[in-house]
Design a binder for these strands. Structure first.
Lengths: 166, 166
DNA sequence: ATAGATGCAAATATTTTGCCGCCAG
DNA sequence: CTGGCGGCAAAATATTTGCATCTAT
């Protein structure tokens, strides 16, 4: 949908303190995933993303690094990474249509908390969440491998505005 | 679509102990939602559903009651109910493509727990979940209105099979 | 009476697939 | 070398919209 403006696009200048290759790239290499030019770019985009991205954003950023990256390849690479469990898929409660968002799978699960009015999305970690997943695993005797929690509501600022104006 | 057989479709004979009209229908009436023939049917389908349904399943069931229900109307009615907060939308971790599923918004939130191998989906309620949402509301000073948690993994049966065979 | 709902068809949006030439290992 | 990968176009899926007509209130 070519969002055009309002979003800062970092084309990858955030360097980690110790590494030139990001976590995703290393993880992929460790699993023996064939490393092509396009995949390297897409992995770098994901590694450098400061937040979840949708497919078009991934494509856009990838093409800034290397114009020869095709949308289809983004889809195929995302599929691969999803299957390998290296990235997570979100839809943020369909705040903006049925777009999907992706982010690297960090060491700890977090919850996405979205404001239904201003659209701001924040992340939340909690021991309670870990406990909850453990409870499910125990109660159902199952092995939990993925989980996704998205919470919507109205943030403090929007609540204030809604009270004063509306 | 349009699978002729194999699915039991209860065309609405499950009577509640005290009411003839389901909770959704009542809630909709209470909000002054204009009640058309089609909407009545769709609400009944949702009320009678023993589990989450996707759009095609809703259409299929609705048409068994009244053939003159159009897919577009199902979409529009779902939108309406979503906006009114009367139904919840799920995607069950995209287990089966990007289909969306809908269910009436019960008095208490529950978590959907899906087996990634056999596809079985179970529901889970927990006080921990309520606590978690409260924690988010407190920490962010926000009013939480919707939440969705979906957990995936391997159920006890599948774990057994995977150990013995594979 | 009339605002709002529905049906239908066509438009959009999103994701997947077939096929073939190309490249990493 | 060779099997997997990427590009391209086209298909498949999913959802939304314009408009004329109909209907609940």
């Amino acid at each position: 949908m070519a969002s055009s403006a309002s979003h800062r696009v970092s084309t990858g200048e955030r360097l980690n303190t110790a590494e030139t290759t990001g976590r995703l790239q290393q993880a992929a290499a460790a699993r023996g995933i064939r490393m092509t030019r396009q995949r390297r770019v897409i992995l770098q985009v994901m590694d450098d993303a400061e937040q979840h991205l949708d497919v078009d954003q991934i494509l856009e950023r990838a093409q800034k690094i290397d114009a020869g990256v095709h949308l289809v390849t983004v889809y195929r690479t995302i599929d691969l990474l999803k299957k390998e469990g290296l990235i997570d898929e979100l839809d943020l409660l369909h705040l903006r249509g049925d777009r999907h968002y992706y982010e690297t799978h960090g060491p700890r699960d977090h919850i996405h908390v979205a404001c239904l009015r201003c659209g701001k999305v924040r992340e939340f970690e909690s021991n309670l969440y870990e406990q909850l997943k453990n409870q499910i695993a125990r109660d159902f005797h199952m092995k939990v491998t993925v989980s996704r929690t998205e919470v919507g509501g109205y943030c403090a600022e929007c609540l204030k505005k809604m009270n004063s104006c509306e």
